[in-house]
């Protein structure tokens, strides 16, 4: 389990990194390395060059935005987000998901940008970003573009990133008023890939009816799956035990076509979608504070 030989570059700036990426056809950017390096050690991946982004401080800046949202630098470590009071306040769904990502050691090195660019179907962050309606900022040597999370994940390990492009930051909108959130996943052991996971956001209008529901599922398909029929079933009425039950049933029966592997059959995954969606929506509904603008 030793990797094949590769060239190593450590650019000091984003521009330098983008130039190197454009120059080397078979190069991979190195963020936390928690997925890339094992793949290289197994020799399932063998890039001719690694472009180490860990020296680019500008990519790791995370802070609040004037509109009350958050801007996360792509190279921000998971552990930074996990411990950040700002994240807990402005993106509590993200804060709740962070401890579910692998193990503390991995969170010390892994980055939010790396996880999103890698787009593992069992990863937590893609589903959370889709649920939060995040915007991803992509840059190449010549241009910058902004892609909504829902459009960023295009298939199995596939993203909207074009050759020569880097994900540089993620922008989260301010938490909507009268919202509740919940992140729920089931894994065999603490830190394992989830068998199924749910990232849910519910927003109510002044009449207490559900005005927006975002239910993003992980580990049930090629990437994060938005449970649109479940969300539709919740809209226009106050969340209740029966509406949540019905929504969960739709999520399981119609919104997903899960794969089978040695840990979970498709049928078992469907059952987990049914149960975890119901539990997540119940918790999210219970967390909505009618009058304050920041959900707890």
């Amino acid at each position: 389990m030793k990797p094949a030989a590769f060239e190593y570059h450590r650019p000091a700036s984003l521009d330098e990194a983008l130039a190197l990426l454009a120059e080397h056809e078979d190069a991979k950017p190195l963020a936390g390395g928690q997925s890339l390096i094992p793949a290289m050690n197994f020799r399932l991946a063998a890039p001719a060059a690694l472009i180490d982004l860990n020296g680019i401080g500008a990519l790791a800046r995370t802070g609040g935005m004037d509109d009350g949202g958050l801007q996360l630098g792509a190279m921000t470590r998971h552990c930074t987000l996990e411990r950040s009071p700002l994240v807990a306040e402005r993106a509590p769904l993200l804060a709740e998901a962070m401890p579910c990502i692998a193990h503390p050691q991995i969170r010390n090195r892994g980055t939010v940008g790396g996880s999103l660019a890698h787009a593992d179907p069992a990863a937590e962050l893609p589903a959370v970003m889709v649920a939060l309606e995040a915007t991803l900022v992509l840059r190449s040597a010549s241009a910058e573009r902004r892609v909504p999370a829902e459009q960023f994940f295009t298939g199995l390990f596939a993203t909207a990133l074009e050759p020569g492009e880097l994900l540089t930051s993620i922008e989260l909108p301010p938490p909507p008023a009268r919202s509740g959130f919940a992140f729920q996943e089931l894994a065999r052991r603490h830190g394992d890939y989830a068998l199924v996971g749910v990232a849910a956001m519910l927003t109510l209008n002044e009449a207490g009816q559900c005005s927006r529901a975002r239910v993003a599922l992980l580990s049930v398909g090629d990437g994060p799956v938005l449970a649109v029929r479940a969300a539709a079933a919740l809209a226009g009425q106050p969340p209740s035990a029966s509406s949540i039950l019905a929504a969960a049933e739709l999520a399981a029966r119609e919104d997903v076509d899960p794969p089978s592997d040695i840990h979970a059959s498709a049928a078992y995954r469907r059952q987990l979608v049914r149960v975890l969606t119901r539990r997540a929506l119940t918790r999210a509904a219970g967390r909505v504070r009618p009058s304050s603008s920041i959900p707890t």
Partner: peptide
């Protein structure tokens, strides 16, 4: 071989893809 031994989680999805 190797892909079967360490890629089991993805084989179903990859083959469909």
């Amino acid at each position: 071989g190797k892909i079967a031994a360490v890629g089991q989680r993805l084989l179903d999805s990859v083959s469909k893809l």
